[in-house]
Amino acid sequence: TDPCYEEGGAPRGCIPGLVNAALGREVLVSNTCGRPATWACDSSDLMRAHPPALLTLAGGSTSSVCWRSEVLHRVPLNVTLTVPLGKAFELVFVSLRFCSAPPASVALLKSQDHGHSWTPLGFFSSHCSLDYGRPPASSDGPAGPGPEALCFPAPQAHSDGGGLMAFSVQDGSPPGLDLDSSPVLQDWLTATDIRILLTRPSMPGDTKDLDAIVPYSYSATELQVGGRCKCNGHASRCLLDTQGHLICDCRHGTEGPDCGRCKPFYCDRPWQRATAREAHACLACSCNGHARRCRFNMELYRLSGRRSGGVCLNCRHNTAGRHCHYCREGFYRDPDRALNDRRACRACDCHPVGAAGKTCNQTTGQCPCKDGVTGLTCNRCAPGFQQSRSPVAPCVKTP
């Protein structure tokens, strides 16, 4: 069964399952130890390498094999971890496990345009004002009407020496926002890339004095980006296309990497995101099988009471009209054939002499006859008339 359709075939909103979107993805890291090799880290030696691939390995990693930065001696000590997710996801959480003492200051950012621009999701710091110029987050969440990047306490060091940075997108979002009805929340959750900035190591006594920093390196593993492949409610799964790009397996007459538009012939009403209550499927234009293309007309859609705005293009089989529902000039509807029959429209075939024109009644097929002429195609003299020799007046009254 297809989760995007009811048993009876009616469309319903559907979403892909929750996954770790970072799993197996390449992590771009600004700094990794081992080049040149040191006693503790050698990127050319598998046993002593600590590459960023260890951050997103399937099945996780262990603290003995973590990504590690170089040993840093001077400020700024920024190290950047960037994970391109391959396509838009709707985030649920982001977490990173540190293999050594967690940093005292971390910024979490997202991109919605594959890394061209970045916006903050949240900050973690023991000194929010000093590091990020903003107050520590209140326990009530954001005060504003929409989501915002708040500054949370820095990750705590665990007894084993490591620590966990965990961010839930709900942490930055005011309670009560409904994903179906809030474009602001939809925007807040959407990301194509995640970036983690490690900006300050934790020091003994948590000093604010950057000059006091002693040699330090960052070390982490298990970078998880929990989220759902973003398909706008029109797909229940994502797949790899022939070029290896992750795309939604779109239903409901939609297409695009995120099912973000209607398929070419499915433009009888505007594209909309599906909700839990309404699938908002894209509808095929009604062209009675005589056209392969159509376009959307907003004015017609409004005039129809927001029910139908599709206009068929290039009606074939001698049909015409918005829905290819009548016959073009010079043709008439064959009452014995269905409207979607290829031969639903017959040529008028008006008699070249008996008819006064070539265009017949599109419903009855009756050609316009000259005086004294009768018949559907005007090919006979009417009772009381007989054929003359004049093509201008082919039938004259019988003497």
Binding site: H351, P352, V353, G354, V373, T374, G375, N379, R380, C381, A382, P383, Q387, R389, S390, P391, V392, P394, C395
Partner: peptide, 23 residues
């Protein structure tokens, strides 16, 4: 009674050559 169809051969096109349909 069904009248016979118009017989094209009976028409005299002498003065109406420009109206004569192509057959």
């Amino acid at each position: 009674d069904v009248m016979p169809t118009l017989d094209m051969a009976l028409f005299d096109w002498t003065d109406y050559e420009d109206l004569k349909p192509e057959v």
